[in-house]
């Protein structure tokens, strides 16, 4: 089974729980084949997806506004971006919209965008209605899910959805054959490979 490394970039305001989501994802089903990383800003996890294994290389970004301009360094080359907001903070949803706009304009082509409304265990102090967020996500053809990193709700699902949106490698030889020669004309699917 082929392993594909997929770079995933985490965006969103500071304090919305970006790292908590990923920690929950990585920690709950720990992959014993992968050596542990040195800190929570960069984590990896491999999940099966169809005929492939997807190894997520998860790049966290600093969410403070002052670091906003550094983000392109991180999202360049990403196969997917997870933009996280806090359902109890309307501001974080506004920031999310900015990120979506930026990614659409300057992000990698065909990047899979996933919107995660975190802290849905705090529904009683919700400021962002689920309907609104969902409609927004649909309008930009993004994955949408509400999560709770604290209660491990929908975290796994979030990444499963991302995995499903990553198109499989088109070249059947690549999938079935243990060895192949990289031709001088890389397959069109090559760009989705990271």
């Amino acid at each position: 089974m082929a392993i594909r490394e997929l770079k995933v970039c985490l965006l969103g305001d500071t304090g919305v729980g970006k790292s908590s989501i990923v920690c929950r994802f990585v920690q709950d089903h720990f992959d014993h084949n992968i050596s542990p990383t040195i800190g929570a800003s960069f984590l990896t996890k491999t999940v099966p997806s169809g005929n492939e294994l997807h190894k997520f290389l998860i790049w966290d970004t600093a969410g403070q506004e002052r670091f906003h301009s550094l983000a392109p360094m991180y999202y360049r080359g990403s196969a997917a971006a997870v933009i996280v907001y806090d359902i109890t903070k309307l501001d974080s949803f506004q920031t999310l919209k900015k990120w979506v706009k930026e990614l659409k304009e300057h992000g990698p082509e065909d990047i899979v965008v996933a919107i995660a409304g975190n802290k849905n265990d705090l529904g009683d102090i919700r400021e962002v209605p689920m309907k609104e967020a969902k409609e927004f996500a649909e309008s930009i053809a993004a994955i949408f899910i509400e999560t709770s990193a604290r209660n491990a709700v929908n975290v796994e699902e979030l990444f499963q959805k991302i995995s499903k949106q990553i198109p499989p490698l088109e070249n059947p030889e690549v999938e079935s054959n243990e060895s192949f020669k990289l031709t001088r004309q890389p397959a069109p699917s090559a760009r989705r490979c990271c």
Binding site: A2, I3, R4, E5, M73, R76, G77, V174, N177, E178, S179, F180, K181, L182, P186, A190, R191, C193, C194
Partner: peptide, 22 residues
């Protein structure tokens, strides 16, 4: 970065297989 990225994308193919004659 874009340049590097593309390079490493390609090398991803290589990683997934055992190196053989080719």
């Amino acid at each position: 970065r874009t340049l590097h990225c593309n390079q490493s994308r390609r090398s991803k193919h290589r990683r997934t297989i055992r190196r053989q004659a080719g």
